[in-house]
């Protein structure tokens, strides 16, 4: 078996408070294999986004990563990198689609400039070459190349989301982190975007860390799933096992709290 793309060992993150520290992530370990779609689920405040921010080293005080934590990305020790090496890591090795990514584009720059910004900074590409590359990337996410001259407000929410994903794929990262990438979109658009990412993953071979609280959606797209509760990873298993034979009581309760369509196990019975 080949080495995992991402390997997290004993990760602990605390938010330092005046009276007491908040243990947001407690001793979490998991790996993501090359080309794997890994889901991280749990309710708000359970620490899933904190893990994503730790991997990309975007955590700022009062958050601190406790010593003894280890994050290896493609064999490199992420926690030991200086800022120059981090610059090299972000976008190229790992790219992140933020929650409400549709609002993470700069409103006063055209789509083309936002591609150019990433491509020039990391590869020194010329404007002409960047334009051609950006057009290719937009086609990957089903957006006509003539929209390069558009501003973010001229695109729908779903299109903006797809532009962000295209920018994230610009440098062929090995790991794509998606933090609740589709929660602000409606189901049809959400479905189209996830199908698209899944197909691109198969073509380009990157791994995905997918964070959401929508368990049903997660089972549909993920290979393996980790369930988080109050900073701890309480269960990691194949997606189908998480769905059909969850071992942890919390996983079972999460399922019981979700009304579902076309299933006899609807919450009408499980809810009370």
């Amino acid at each position: 078996m080949s080495d995992p793309v991402l390997s997290i060992r004993n990760l602990s993150v605390d938010y330092i408070g005046a009276e007491a520290d908040f243990h947001a992530v407690r001793n979490v370990s998991f790996t993501i294999a090359a080309g794997e779609f890994f889901g991280l689920a749990g309710e708000s405040g359970c620490g899933k986004s904190t893990i994503a921010f730790a991997i990309t080293r975007l955590l700022r005080p009062p958050a601190i990563i406790r010593s003894g934590s280890e994050i290896l990305l493609d064999g490199r020790d992420v926690l030991a990198l200086d800022s120059a090496a981090l610059r090299d890591l972000r976008w190229r090795e790992v790219a992140m689609v933020f929650q409400s990514a549709m609002n993470s584009l700069n409103p006063v720059l055209t789509i083309e400039s936002q591609f150019y910004d990433v491509l020039r900074t990391h590869t020194g590409m010329s404007r002409t070459a960047a334009r051609a590359r950006a057009a290719d990337l937009l086609r990957l996410v089903d957006i006509p190349a003539d929209r390069l001259s558009a501003y973010p407000h001229q695109l729908s929410g779903g299109m903006r989301q797809r532009v962000v994903i295209a920018i994230c794929l610009a440098l062929n990262p090995k790991l794509l982190i998606m933090d609740e990438p589709t929660t602000a979109l409606d189901v049809v658009v959400q479905r189209e975007i996830l199908e698209r990412i899944n197909r691109l993953r198969q073509e380009l071979g990157f791994s995905v860390l997918f964070i959401t609280h929508d368990l049903a959606l997660m089972v549909q797209v993920s290979d393996r799933i980790g369930i988080m509760l109050e900073g701890e990873l309480v269960e990691v298993d194949d997606a189908q096992a998480i769905y059909r034979s969850p071992r942890h009581d919390y996983t079972r309760r999460l399922w019981a709290s979700i009304p579902r369509l076309g299933s006899e196990r609807t919450a009408r019975d499980a809810g009370q």
Binding site: V187, E195, L215, V219, Q220, Y243, R260, L261, G262
Partner: peptide, 26 residues
């Protein structure tokens, strides 16, 4: 039918759909 096929359903992988082709002619 399109709306229903897009609802996340853990019983179906992303490649399987509830109704034939609704998602392909959005």
């Amino acid at each position: 039918r399109l709306l229903l096929s897009a609802v996340p359903d853990p019983d179906r992988r992303l490649t399987e759909t509830l109704f034939d082709g609704e998602l392909s002619r959005v």
